[in-house]
Amino acid sequence: MKEKLTKVLPETLEVIEDPETAPKKRATYTRIVEGITTTLKTIEDPKTPPKEQATYTRIVEGITTTLKTIEDPKTPPKEQATYTRILEGITYTLENIQNPPLPQGNPPQEKRAHHTRAMELATTTPVTVHAPNLPPAERATYMRIVETITYTVNKIQTLPQEERASFARVAELTTAALVAVQAPKTRPKDPEDQLAIEKTVKETGNTLAATQEPKASQKERNEAKKKLDQRTRSLQNSQFLELMKEVKRHKAPAACIKEIKSRTLQTGWSDGSLWGLGDSLCAATVAEGARQDSGRWSALFECVQRHPFSTCVVHIPKD
C-alpha cells in the first residue's frame, strides 16, 4: 500500500497545487488527501484493533486505486466525475467514523503541511488518534459499507467501458445515500428509520459487490444485477408514480418533489420514497394529505406524519 501511495499521492498533490486547477476540484482533492492522511493515522495507531486496521488498509488501497483511475488521462471525463463523487462520499464517511472530524477551511500553508504529512505517513511512524464517538454498531455498519463500495468500485474499473456505467451509477447513488443517512440535515430523525435506511444501504452495497464477486455463480450475479436494475428504474415504478401524482395533487413544492425523487433513486421504492416524504420539506404536503380522510393515500400520509416512516409501508394502496 505504501508503495502505491507514494506513486499516486504526488500526482494528486500536483493537481491541488496547480494554479489552473478549478477551486471546486482543488477542494475535493484536498479533502480526499486529508481523508487518506487521517485514515493512515488510524491504521498506524497501536490502539486501533487489528481487524479495523485491516479494514482501513483495504479502504485506503481502494481509494488509492480509484484516484489513479481518476488521474489517468485515458479515463473518460464522465467516469472521472463519477469516481470523484464516490470518493467524496467515502471520505465523508471516514470523517464520521474517525473522531475528531477532518479540519475544514485550512489556510494554504496548513494545507501544504497536511499534504506533507500524508506523504510522510505513507512511509513512516504511527500517530495517536482519538477514539470515535459513533456507537460501535453504527461504526461497524458504515465501515462495512465503505469497504464494500470501495471493493466494488475497484472491480468496476476493470470492466469493459460499456459495462461500467450502470454499476458505477449504482455505486454513486449508494454512496450518496450513505452520506445522506449520516448528514445532520438529511439523516432520518427517528432511530427506527435510521436503522431501516442503514440496512437498505448496506443491502444495496452487498448486492453491488455480488455482481463482481468471482466466487459467485453466474445465476447469483444475474440475480444481483436484476435487483440493481430495479433500483435504477425506481422512478418508473408504478406505485411510485401514483404517489407522485398524489403528492402533486396536494401542490407539493418543487423541493419536496426533488427530495422524494432523490431518496427514491438512492434507496429505492418504497424505503427511499417514504424517507423523502418524511422530510421537513414535505411536511405541509403530508399534513394536507392526512387531512383528506376519504383519500386512498390519506392513511399513508397520516402514518408518515405521526410515526416512523419505515413503519408506514403497510399503508401504501395495494391496487
Results as ranks from 00 to 15, higher is better:
120 E>C: 03
152 T>W: 04
171 A>H: 06
192 E>V: 11
181 V>E: 08
198 E>N: 12
163 E>F: 02
180 A>K: 11
193 D>S: 03
129 V>Q: 09
191 P>K: 10
144 R>D: 00
132 P>K: 08
159 L>A: 04
125 T>S: 15
146 V>I: 12
121 L>A: 04
184 P>V: 04
138 E>D: 12
188 P>H: 11
184 P>W: 03
121 L>V: 02
156 I>R: 05
151 Y>M: 05
134 L>K: 11
183 A>T: 06
178 L>D: 01
186 T>V: 07
143 M>R: 09
139 R>K: 15
118 A>L: 11
143 M>P: 03
194 Q>K: 12
128 T>R: 13
139 R>S: 11
131 A>G: 06
191 P>L: 09
179 V>S: 06
170 V>S: 01
130 H>G: 05
167 F>M: 12
143 M>Q: 15
177 A>Y: 05
190 D>E: 13
126 P>N: 07
134 L>N: 11
122 A>Y: 06
140 A>F: 09
189 K>W: 04
166 S>R: 14
174 T>G: 00
170 V>L: 02
121 L>K: 01
119 M>S: 14
154 N>Y: 03
160 P>G: 11
174 T>Q: 03
166 S>F: 06
173 L>I: 01
195 L>P: 07
195 L>H: 13
128 T>S: 15
120 E>P: 01
178 L>S: 03
166 S>C: 02
195 L>M: 09
151 Y>D: 08
197 I>D: 00
123 T>Q: 15
141 T>S: 08
146 V>W: 01
157 Q>L: 05
128 T>Q: 15
134 L>I: 12
120 E>H: 07
152 T>Y: 02
151 Y>I: 01
198 E>R: 15
131 A>R: 11
147 E>H: 04
148 T>F: 01
128 T>E: 14
183 A>N: 02
130 H>A: 07
147 E>M: 06
188 P>N: 10
182 Q>I: 13
173 L>S: 00
157 Q>W: 02
126 P>Q: 05
141 T>P: 02
121 L>Q: 09
150 T>A: 00
169 R>T: 10
150 T>L: 00
174 T>A: 01
153 V>Q: 02
136 P>Y: 11
143 M>E: 14
177 A>K: 11
157 Q>Y: 03
129 V>M: 06
164 R>M: 02
118 A>Y: 09
158 T>V: 14
192 E>A: 10
163 E>D: 05
167 F>D: 14
196 A>V: 04
156 I>E: 07
162 E>F: 08
169 R>N: 09
127 V>P: 06
153 V>I: 04
158 T>Q: 10
166 S>M: 08
124 T>M: 07
126 P>D: 08
145 I>M: 03
